[in-house]
Structure formats: structure tokens, C-alpha cells
């Protein structure tokens, strides 16, 4: 075992992420998988693959995400807010505001010294304004995440989608398609509706500088631009945005 090595796992509602870092913070291995129903089994299997079969002491393990309590042998467990705050501060040293859009929730975080979350806001208890909202809507349109950017780019204007409720938006989509609205305009409408919701979330932490976006949804540039247009500050994706939570958990494990 290399000295100072540690592992971070982000057992999220949609995807399961892991990183292995060295003492100097270098990422030496990482993994992103669809979340399996059994967090324990998935963790054991992937750790065996990343670190080799367990014999002798394992490096410190930090866990975050909704499944964090079910990650076996975790030495530290922290919420996603602390994990994304800590992780973002490592990969973007001057980050002061973080927007994490996860599978089932979204968080806006104001960072303090040392990457601590000093203030945060989360979406309310439904899935409106989260990754799941887009995922459901895209599935209804037979589109993939990879198609999102191209489709949005092809739209002349956004269709008006008033509900960010993951269920009601789908009903609206059916109606729009029936009225002959092009798919690209519907998708752009979805992105705009989501951006509106996320901008309102961000406003709760009163951003007065650039925003670092984390989580899988941050890979979508069209969405980030739509948010930036609303909040008046650039919104930039963190490097490897999907791994930021796991990275924050790994750093927390080493403290």
C-alpha cells in the first residue's frame, strides 16, 4: 500500500462513483457505474478490482451519497454537500460557489475557507430540477444524454415547458409533440425550464462570482450556459464533474 493513499466512494441514487488518490492528491484510479441495488456488494466488487483482493489493511475510505451508510468499512462518512464542497475546492482552488446536479437532488453551495460548505440550498423533496427530470424527459423522447447538446443546438426557439415536475413535464411533452412542436424545441424547453429552477436554487446562496458545476449533469454545456445567462456569472464544469463528490469523500477520509 502506498503511503497516504485513500479511497472515496460516492454511492448516489443513479450512479456509483469511486476514486483512488495518492497522498499528493493524484487520482490513480476511478470508476463510474450505474448504481446497483446492493451498495455493499457493488463496493466490495469494485474495490477488489481497483485495489486488488483484500489482504492486509485497506487505505482509508471516505463515503458519501445517499448510500453512504451502506458502504462497508468506510472510515469517514459525509453528506454530498460536504463532499462536493471539499472536492470542488480541490479541483478548482478558487471555487467559491458550487452547483451540484445529482440524480435525485440539486444543491447550491457557498464555500468558505478550506472548502467547507458555509451555506447551502437544496431542491425540495421532489425530483423537480434534478438529473432525473431530464432523464425521464429524454427517455420519453427516445433520446440519449449524448444527443442533448446537438438537439438543443438545432432548436430555433425553446418550447414553453412550465412544469419542472418530473411527472407533469412528461405530460406536457406529450401535448407539445401532439401539437407538432419539433423535438429539438421541446428539448431546449426542458433545458431552459431546468436552468430556471437551478438558477433560483443558486440565488439562495447569493453568488457574486463564477460558479463551479459538479455532478453528471454538469457535462451539459447548453444547460450551464442557460443557467449562467440567468444568474449573471459564468457557470463552468469542474474537471471530471461526476467524480467530484467521490474526490471530496477521499480527501475527507485522509483528514
Amino acid at each position: 500500500m502506498t503511503d497516504g493513499r485513500r479511497v472515496g466512494i460516492d454511492a448516489g441514487s443513479t450512479t456509483w462513483k469511486a476514486v483512488v488518490i495518492e497522498g499528493d492528491g493524484r487520482v490513480v484510479a476511478s470508476r463510474v457505474e450505474a448504481a446497483e441495488p446492493r451498495v455493499e456488494a457493488q463496493t466490495r466488487r469494485v474495490l477488489d478490482e481497483l485495489l486488488g483482493p483484500a489482504a492486509g489493511p485497506r487505505p482509508p475510505l471516505g463515503a458519501t451519497g445517499y448510500g453512504r451508510r451502506r458502504v462497508p468499512d468506510a472510515t469517514t462518512r459525509i453528506t454530498e454537500i460536504a463532499a462536493h464542497a471539499g472536492g470542488a475546492a480541490r479541483v478548482v482552488p478558487d471555487a467559491r460557489f458550487v452547483l451540484d446536479v445529482g440524480g435525485q437532488d440539486a444543491k447550491a453551495i457557498r464555500l468558505g475557507p478550506g472548502g467547507r460548505a458555509v451555506e447551502f440550498a437544496m431542491n425540495d423533496r421532489c425530483a423537480a430540477g434534478t438529473g432525473r427530470f431530464l432523464e425521464n424527459a429524454l427517455a420519453r423522447l427516445h433520446l440519449d444524454w449524448a444527443d442533448l447538446e446537438r438537439t438543443v443546438g438545432a432548436a430555433a426557439r425553446p418550447a414553453r415547458i412550465s412544469s419542472t415536475c418530473a411527472v407533469f413535464a412528461e405530460t406536457e411533452i406529450v401535448g407539445l409533440l401532439a401539437d407538432g412542436v419539433p423535438v429539438s424545441e421541446v428539448v431546449r424547453g426542458l433545458v431552459e425550464a431546468l436552468a430556471e429552477r437551478l438558477a433560483a436554487l443558486l440565488a439562495q446562496v447569493r453568488p457574486d462570482g463564477p460558479i463551479t458545476a459538479t455532478g453528471g449533469v454538469a457535462r451539459n454545456r447548453a444547460l450551464l450556459e442557460a443557467i449562467a445567462a440567468r444568474v449573471g456569472w459564468p457557470v463552468r464544469a469542474a474537471p471530471e464533474p461526476q467524480l467530484v463528490g467521490a474526490l471530496g469523500a477521499a480527501w475527507a477520509a485522509g483528514r
Binding site: T76, T79, E80, I81, A82, D105, A117, V118, M122, R125
Partner: peptide, 23 residues
């Protein structure tokens, strides 16, 4: 009451006072 979401929010708030306590 969505307990998991509520607990998550509470824990994140409490982490600010007592880091690393939410084991």
C-alpha cells in the same frame, strides 16, 4: 415526510458545526 432527504439536509447543516460526526 421524505426522511432520507430531510436527514441529508440536517446532516449537511450539522456537519458545519461538528465535522465528521455523522457516522
Amino acid at each position: 415526510v421524505a426522511w432520507e432527504a430531510t436527514a441529508n439536509r440536517l446532516e449537511a447543516f450539522l456537519e458545519g458545526f461538528a465535522p465528521g460526526s455523522g457516522r
